[in-house]
């Protein structure tokens, strides 16, 4: 069967088997950022954003995903131009082996989309579908708090300079968007 996705802003058509999950379709087509940790919806390593909601893509049947809007880690930021959530994970050393991280970042991004200023307990709650074996979660919680601050600063900056997001931060000026924040 064919599956059509609005994937990271582009319309994509993929061939899929009946039994394929959304994770299968993504990984078979080179979107390997989402990881397979359990294939049963229990670890969150495969988290992507489907129609605005963070979902464990291993338990989303490909047929159900047909026609939906999907955001994956590949669409977030690039190594030289990180998204604030990615930047916060890097600057807080909130990662070790990294296997959980693409899923963790997608979940965090969705969480901050719904609640831009969560408490630490709300972050714990919001990330409860996602496991991490390496970090004890502390630095991940730090990173999400920090990401919330960075994103608030950015939208603050938008208001203050009349709606030019990131102006003064794109060039090689050496400034640290979000103030470094570690």
């Amino acid at each position: 069967m064919q599956v059509e996705l609005e994937l990271n802003g582009d319309t994509e058509r993929f061939e899929a088997a009946k039994t394929d999950s959304l994770l299968d379709v993504l990984r078979k087509n080179g979107y390997t950022g989402a990881k397979r940790g359990c294939d049963t919806g229990a670890c969150g390593f495969c988290t992507v954003i489907v129609d605005g909601k963070a979902r464990n893509s291993c338990v989303v049947p490909a047929s159900k995903a047909d026609g939906s809007t999907v955001e994956t880690i590949e669409g977030l930021g690039s190594q030289s131009d990180l998204h604030p959530v990615q930047e916060a994970f890097v600057d807080n050393t909130a990662l070790q082996c990294g296997f959980c991280i693409p899923g963790m970042i997608m979940r965090s991004t969705a969480l901050l989309g719904e609640d831009p200023d969560p408490t630490r307990d709300e972050i714990r709650e919001g990330l409860s579908e996602n496991l991490c074996r390496c970090t004890g979660y502390e630095k991940i919680l730090d990173a999400v708090e920090d990401a919330a601050d960075r994103m608030a600063d950015e939208s603050g900056a938008v208001a203050a300079d009349g709606g030019h997001p990131g102006s003064g931060c794109d060039g090689p000026c050496g400034c640290e968007p979000g103030g470094g924040g570690t």
């Binding site: 990984r27 390997t32 950022g33 880690i73 990180l82 990615q86 890097v90 600057d91 990662l95 693409p102």
Partner: peptide
């Protein structure tokens, strides 16, 4: 900064699979 941090947060780090 962790050596592999950027490729991890962008999903570009490659694991065996």
């Amino acid at each position: 900064e962790k050596y592999d941090a950027r490729k991890i947060v962008t999903g570009e780090a490659k694991y065996t699979a």
